[in-house]
Design a protein around this nucleic acid. Structure first.
Lengths: 239, 239
DNA sequence: CGTGCAGCTCTGGTATACCATATATTTGCA
DNA sequence: TGCAAATATATGGTATACCAGAGCTGCACG
C-alpha cells in the first residue's frame, strides 16, 4: 500500500521529461477528482448500476489508504453526490424529481443573474462567440444531430454563466451542471424541444448583444424555468 | 485524549435524564458546528484577530483527535471559510470586496427566485407573518434601534427564502448568509439605508400578498442588488 | 560583521490500528 | 418449526504513528 502511494507521488520524478501533467495535487484531490468523474460518467438516471461504494474496496482499487479516500468521500457527500449511512454503507445519490426541479430553478436564477451581469460587463467579442456554438445547426435541423446539439446546448448555458464574470456563480453552478446536464440530455429529444430551444437561445444572444439587461435576464430565466416545467410534467420516471 | 472523547460520546448515557440535547451527531459534526459558529461569531471583517488555526492546538482545545478535526476543517475549506496551505498553516479567509459583491449578487438571484416561487406556492398566512417582523418599527424609526432592526432585516430575507419552498435554495443561501449578514449589519447604519430598506421590504411584502410574481421577483432582486452597489461604492475598507 | 548552508522544527498528508454498533447469521429453546 | 437471543461480521468513526517538505535558526566560514 505504502509503496503504491509513494509510486504515485514520485511518478513525475521517475519520468522527468513527461511534462508533469500537473499531478502535483494531494492524493485526496486525486481521489476526489477520480470519484467525481466516475460518478458523472455513469448515467445516474438511467442505470441500475452499482450504487453502493465500499471504502475498503476503493482502497485496493486506487492503491491508497482510507484517509484520503474518506476525505474525498466527505467532500462528495457535502456536495450532495453521495450519502453515507453509518454502518450501512455509502451510496450514490439519485436525486428525486423534486430535487431536480429545485436544481433547475436554482440554475435558472443563477444563469439569469449571469445574463444580467453579462449585459453590463462582457465584451462584445465574447458575446459574439455564442453564435458560433450553433453555426453547424443553422442549415440542418438539430433533431438530426441530437447528441451534438445537446452538447452545444450545454456549452451555451455554461458560456453565458462564464460571461457573467461572477466566479461565485460559476463555482456554484459547476456542481449543479452534473445533474442539470443529465436532465438536459435526457429531455432534449422530447416534444421538439431542440428546435424551440435554438430559437430561444438566439433571442437570448440578441438580448445580450443589444445589452438589454432586463430582457436577457428574463429570457434566460424563462428558458430554464420552462425546462423545470417540462421535467415536472413529463419526467415521471424520476424518483 | 481518548478518555475525553469517550466521555463526550457517552455523556447521554451518564446523564439519562438530561433531555439529551441531540448530542447524537458524530464528533466530526460537533467539531464542524463548533468551529463554524466560532468563525461566524468573530466579526471577520473588523478584527485583527487570530486568523490562523492550528490543528494540534484544536486537539487540546476540543479534546478530540486530529481525524474529526481534519474532516471538519476539510468541510469548512470546501465551503470557503478557511484555506489550508500545505506546510504553512490553516487560515480563516477574509473575503475580498469583489467576492462579497459576488455573494450579494448571488443572494439577489436566489432570493428573487425564492420570491417568485413564494408568490406561486406560499400560503397567505405565511406571507402575512412577514409584516409582523417589522411591527415594532412601525411607530419609531428603525434608526433608533439599529441592532434590532438589523436582525429583523436579516430575518425578513431569510424568511422570504424559506417561503420560496426550495430546499436547494435554502441550503445554498445558508452559507452565504454568514457573510451577507456581516455586510448587512455593517452597512445598515449608512446613509439612511434602514429607513429606505423598510419601505422596500413592505413593497416586496405587498407584491407577495398580491401574488404579483414578476413584481415580487424584480423588487427582491433590485433591493439586494442595491446593497451590492452600495458596498461597491462605500465599502472600500474591505479587501 | 555578513552570508550561506545544515539541520531542526513545525505542519499538514498519509497509513493504519483500534473501536463501537448495526446488521446478519446461527443456534438453542419453546 | 418458528422465534428470539447471542454471537459473528462488516462498516464507518476515531486515534495515533509516521512521513515529507518548507521555513527558520544558528553556526561556521569568508
Amino acid at each position: 500500500m505504502s509503496v503504491a502511494a509513494k509510486k504515485v507521488q514520485r511518478a513525475p520524478r521517475a519520468a522527468p521529461l513527461s511534462l508533469a501533467p500537473l499531478n502535483t495535487s494531494s492524493l485526496r484531490n486525486q481521489v476526489y477528482v477520480h470519484l467525481k468523474a466516475a460518478i458523472a460518467d455513469m448515467d445516474i438516471y438511467n442505470a441500475q448500476q452499482q450504487l453502493r461504494l465500499d471504502e475498503r474496496e476503493l482502497i485496493t482499487a486506487l492503491g491508497v489508504s482510507r484517509t484520503p479516500i474518506r476525505e474525498a468521500l466527505s467532500l462528495l457527500e457535502q456536495e450532495g453526490f453521495i450519502r453515507t449511512l453509518p454502518r450501512r454503507g455509502i451510496y450514490i445519490i439519485r436525486k428525486s424529481k423534486r430535487q431536480i426541479i429545485e436544481m433547475i430553478q436554482m440554475w435558472a436564477a443563477l444563469e439569469s443573474m449571469a445574463a444580467r451581469l453579462a449585459t453590463l460587463h462582457a465584451p462584445d467579442a465574447e458575446i459574439a462567440k455564442l453564435r458560433h456554438l450553433f453555426d453547424e445547426f443553422q442549415n440542418s435541423p438539430p433533431s438530426e444531430h441530437l447528441h451534438e446539439y445537446s452538447d452545444a446546448n450545454i456549452a451555451f448555458h455554461t458560456e453565458v454563466i462564464r460571461l457573467g464574470g461572477s466566479q461565485a456563480i460559476i463555482d456554484a453552478t459547476r456542481n449543479l451542471l452534473l445533474h442539470v446536464r443529465a436532465i438536459r440530455r435526457a429531455t432534449i429529444g422530447q416534444s421538439d424541444r431542440a428546435a424551440r430551444s435554438i430559437v430561444e437561445h438566439l433571442k437570448i444572444i440578441e438580448a445580450l448583444e443589444r445589452r438589454d439587461t432586463e430582457l436577457a435576464e428574463r429570457l434566460a430565466r424563462q428558458h430554464t424555468l420552462d425546462l423545470a416545467t417540462h421535467v415536472d410534467r413529463n419526467c415521471d420516471f424520476l424518483g
